[in-house]
Amino acid sequence: MKSPMVHVHDVTVAYHRKPVLWNVDLVLDDPRLIGVLGPNGAGKSTLLKAILGLVPIASGTVEIGGKPLAKQRRLIGYVPQRESVDWEFPVTVLDVVLMGTYGRLGWFRRPGSKERAIAIQSLERVGLVDLAHQQIGQLSGGQQQRTFLARALAQDAALYFMDEPMAGVDAATERVIFGLLRELRAQGKMVVVVHHDLRTVPSYFDDVILLHRRLIAHGPVASTFTRENLRKCYGGNLAALEMAAEIVAASAPTK
């Protein structure tokens, strides 16, 4: 039997003995665009970090392609939240994108012309090639996000984890980003995206993971992104519920 791409087995993560994720069991496979949804503090980022081994897991295991994470890091691309780095750091856009190739290079080897070509190509794909030699602090929020995306492209991974790539970007950038995500899927890659905006879910994603401390539902948008599941996830929050109802109603006929 072929091992699934990502197997999260009964994972519990706790910060200071307060569980943030409780007993999450997930199997992700196939090239799909997967949205991770849930209210604030639901543990969306923590789930990503747990899969990537960036936070200690209290109990449970994570396997990537049937093997422990440590052996499979090269398969994984990661786009952290934009606020996680110091944008006044003295590097250029191209430098940041080149960092995507570091994992493949391993220790000591320096990026050469081949890696530069990959980086430039990635920048072309996000439309930032003109800004390659700018310092990153001079970019707008959307451009910074696209830089991160280009870096992930340069990683040339088999599966991508992105932590709110749409936070604080304009509508145009958001469309560009999703165009790219579809391209990645077409190349047979799996993309897991933490997402905030419920309105765009049906048009962007194939699958959704609804999360609120524990896994609420996981499956194709059509069957999973339902009013009932959203209520389980977001609760009686009227505004969110009404909006969800609208979205579900709007997306239903097309499915």
Binding site: A70, R74, M99, G103
Partner: peptide
């Protein structure tokens, strides 16, 4: 010189470096 790239990525984005296995 030897660890230019490693020092750079860890200084800039330690989480990414760890996720990549550096």
């Amino acid at each position: 010189l030897l660890l230019w790239k490693e020092f750079k990525i860890v200084s800039f984005d330690a989480a990414l470096a760890s996720a990549m296995g550096l």
